[in-house]
Amino acid sequence: MNRWTSRWRTLLGLLFTAVMLFPGYWMVNVSLTRDHDMRRQPPMLFPVDPTFDGYRAVLKQQLPYLGTSLLIGLGTVALTIVLAAPAGYALAKLRPRGGGLLSFVLLAAQMIPGIIMAMGFYAIYLNLGLLNAWPGLILADSTIAVPFAVLVFAAFMSGIPEDLLQAAYTDGAGTLRTFWSIVLPISRNAIVTVSLFAFLWAWSDFVFASTLDSGGRLRPITLGIYQYIGNNNQQWNAIMATAVVASIPAAVMLVVAQRYVTAGVTTGAIKD
C-alpha cells in the first residue's frame, strides 16, 4: 500500500467516524443551546452562544438520581463478581457434570427479553415488598450481567495452566485457597472486563428501573431522563445535558479501558 492510499484511507476513516459520531456531537450541541434558539430554522450547528442552564438544571434536579445510579451500578458489580467468578472457575477447571449444558443454559439466558424478567421480578417484589427499593434493582440488574460474566470468567480461567494449580495443591492449598490466592489474582483482566460491563449495563438499565422503581424516591438517572421527556417537552437543553452526564461512564470506559471493552465484546461472541 503506498502512502497516498494510506492518506485517503485516513481521510475516509475520519469522514465515516464523523458521520457515526454525529448524534453524540449533536447531543452536546443541543445541551448548550439556549431555549429560544432551540426552535431556530435551520438549527445552529455550533453552540455559538452557549448556555449552561441545562447543566445547572441537572445539578439542581438530577444529582440524587446520579447517586442512585452509582450505588446500583457498584452494587451490581459486586454481586455479579461474587456470583460469577466462582461459577466460571468451576465451569472451566473443576469440570462438573452437566457443565456443557450449563454453558448452553447461560447462553440461552441471555436471550430472555428484559421485559419478561421485569414482569417476573415485579410479581415477586410485590410479595416481598422490594418494589421501589435499590436492593431490588441491584438484584434485577445483576441478572443482565451474570450469564455473560460466567462465560467470560470460564473462557479466561480455562487458559490458566494446570501445572500452576497442581503446584498449589501439592503445597497443601485447598480448592478454596487456590481459588482465592492464585486464580483470582491471575484473572484480574477478566474481573476488570466483567466489572466494566456490569456497571455500564446497570447504569444504562431502563426496563427494570421503569417497572420496578416507578414510584420510589431513589430513582436512577435513566428514569430521570425519561421523566424529563415526559414532563417538559420544551427544555431540550436540560434533557440533553442530563444525557451528556449519563454518558460519562461510557466515555470513561472508552478512554481508560478500551482494550477491556473490545475483549469483552469478542469473548462474549466468539467463545463457544
Binding site: L21, G24, V30, S204, F206, M240, A250, L254, V261
Partner: peptide, 18 residues
C-alpha cells in the same frame, strides 16, 4: 475505538438524542 461510542451509550441517551 471511537466507533464503539454508539454501542456504549445508555440506550435512553441514544433514543432521546435521536
Amino acid at each position: 475505538a471511537l466507533f464503539l461510542v454508539p454501542w456504549l451509550l445508555p440506550l435512553i441517551v441514544s433514543a432521546s438524542t435521536w
